[in-house]
């Protein structure tokens, strides 16, 4: 959390999101045993995760490209 208080300028967002992703996958891979368990469990979960990231990113980006 200390990161919040150090001014690293334009790097802030990527670093923050990078840390988020790292932490996310640490929990999924180790705490939730995806790394050690049968691959199928992970695949089923990643399909959902991937679809979510894809469709919602695409939907939000159409609001950005909105050109009248």
């Amino acid at each position: 959390m200390a990161v919040s208080y150090i001014d690293i300028g334009p790097l802030f967002l990527p670093v923050l999101l990078g840390l988020m992703v790292v932490k996310f996958f640490m929990v999924v891979l180790y705490f939730m045993h995806i790394k050690f368990d049968n691959k199928l469990f992970g695949r089923l979960f990643y399909i959902g995760l991937g679809l979510a990231v894809f469709v919602y990113a695409a939907a939000l980006s159409t609001f950005q490209f909105f050109a009248g």
Partner: peptide
């Protein structure tokens, strides 16, 4: 299996 499927589905909900 069911639990992982459910969690995959939840990704779309929170997304």
């Amino acid at each position: 299996l069911a639990m992982w499927l459910f969690l995959g589905s939840e990704c779309l909900l929170f997304g």
